[in-house]
Amino acid sequence: MDALLARHRKETRDLQSRITQKKKAATKKTRKGVNDECAALEAELSERHAAEIAELTADTADPADTPDDLLTANEQPNTPTASNPADTPTPQPVATPARKPNRQKARLARRAAEAEEAAAQARAEAASLPDLRARERAALQDAFKARGLVEREVRADGHCLYAAVADQLPLVGLKPRIEATVGYRLVRRTAAEYIARHGGEFEGFLEEPLTEYVRKVGETGEWGGQLELLALAKAYGVDICVLDGDGSVHEIEGPEKGAEGKKIWLAYYRHGFGLGEHYNSLRKA
């Protein structure tokens, strides 16, 4: 049992190391699949360990319990031989001491049963939770139809906000100088430059120096949010309407609110994509 538990501990450590490496190497697009794979590996290892412990616990065979009549002739004690059966001593029954219960095996079996019960309860609770992704998707589809909009998906990565805005700009006469599929780079630089020029409007919302924040917006894959939407609305002179997962609309006003044809639409997801928050472009049907 000690050897089995030692092997289990080593296998658990090895698996955790593998899982850590997989999660570090995951991208925003593959993270959900990696998380599902890691959970399956953990569950498989836990079930196998529980089965091995149960199998070892159930194996109670002990040579000390072997009755005397199963011993071979070579193992029988020396007895006198006689041609007269009357001279053969009558074998006396030997009392076998009662075996003490193995407390360690019982404890391990109890722990394995408790672990399996906890896992089953967790699976049942997960199955009873609402499907937030399906609920959000249905609410947004209803909102699209009500407003005469169709969705154009952009790649689910750290650039999704900027790529969705890049897809919208040609619709209001602000076509990027480069193709929309890579236009997020230009949109990123535009947001970064506006924030740098108007730092006083943004510094109060930042938890890091303005220069570092501007660098992340313009040069990295850092996700965009409310501040970047505000900067883009001001820089491009448009109103940005964000359709939320509950069907509500959040509008970020540009310098000239309500300017004719200067309104772009984005869809915002909290649960619809594996890596978390995501923006898609919306167009008139």
Score class of each variant (00 low, 15 high):
1 M>C: 10
3 A>I: 13
7 R>I: 00
8 H>F: 10
9 R>Y: 03
12 T>N: 06
14 D>C: 03
20 T>W: 10
20 T>P: 13
21 Q>A: 15
21 Q>R: 12
22 K>A: 15
23 K>L: 14
25 A>K: 04
26 A>Q: 03
28 K>F: 12
31 R>M: 11
31 R>Q: 15
31 R>F: 08
32 K>A: 14
34 V>M: 02
34 V>C: 06
35 N>E: 13
36 D>R: 09
38 C>G: 05
38 C>M: 06
39 A>S: 12
42 E>L: 07
42 E>P: 06
45 L>S: 02
46 S>Y: 08
51 A>Y: 00
52 E>F: 07
56 L>A: 11
56 L>H: 09
58 A>H: 00
58 A>D: 03
61 A>Y: 15
62 D>Q: 04
67 P>K: 07
68 D>H: 07
70 L>M: 11
71 L>K: 09
74 N>P: 12
77 P>W: 11
79 T>W: 05
83 S>F: 15
85 P>D: 04
86 A>W: 05
86 A>C: 04
88 T>H: 13
89 P>F: 08
90 T>M: 15
91 P>K: 09
92 Q>Y: 09
93 P>H: 01
94 V>M: 08
96 T>S: 07
100 K>T: 14
103 R>L: 15
103 R>T: 11
108 L>C: 10
109 A>W: 13
110 R>Q: 15
111 R>D: 08
112 A>K: 03
114 E>S: 15
114 E>H: 11
115 A>T: 09
116 E>F: 06
118 A>V: 00
120 A>P: 06
123 R>C: 10
124 A>H: 01
128 S>A: 13
129 L>T: 06
132 L>P: 01
135 R>C: 05
135 R>K: 12
137 R>C: 03
140 L>Y: 07
141 Q>I: 11
149 L>K: 14
150 V>I: 09
153 E>Y: 03
154 V>R: 01
160 C>D: 13
161 L>W: 02
161 L>Q: 03
162 Y>E: 06
164 A>E: 06
166 A>S: 05
166 A>R: 15
168 Q>H: 02
169 L>W: 02
170 P>R: 08
172 V>E: 01
172 V>T: 01
174 L>A: 11
176 P>I: 00
176 P>C: 02
177 R>M: 10
177 R>Y: 06
189 R>V: 03
189 R>E: 14
192 A>S: 08
197 R>L: 13
199 G>V: 00
201 E>Y: 08
202 F>R: 02
203 E>T: 12
204 G>I: 04
205 F>M: 15
208 E>H: 03
212 E>M: 07
213 Y>T: 08
215 R>D: 14
217 V>M: 02
222 E>T: 08
223 W>C: 00
230 L>W: 14
234 K>Y: 10
234 K>R: 11
235 A>H: 07
235 A>W: 02
241 C>N: 14
241 C>Y: 10
243 L>S: 08
244 D>T: 07
245 G>C: 09
246 D>T: 01
248 S>W: 02
248 S>H: 05
248 S>D: 09
249 V>S: 00
253 E>F: 09
256 E>H: 13
257 K>C: 11
258 G>Q: 07
258 G>T: 00
259 A>V: 04
260 E>A: 12
265 W>G: 06
266 L>M: 04
266 L>E: 08
266 L>R: 01
268 Y>N: 03
268 Y>M: 07
270 R>F: 05
272 G>R: 09
275 L>C: 13
275 L>F: 13
277 E>I: 08
278 H>P: 05
279 Y>S: 04
284 K>M: 15
285 A>H: 00
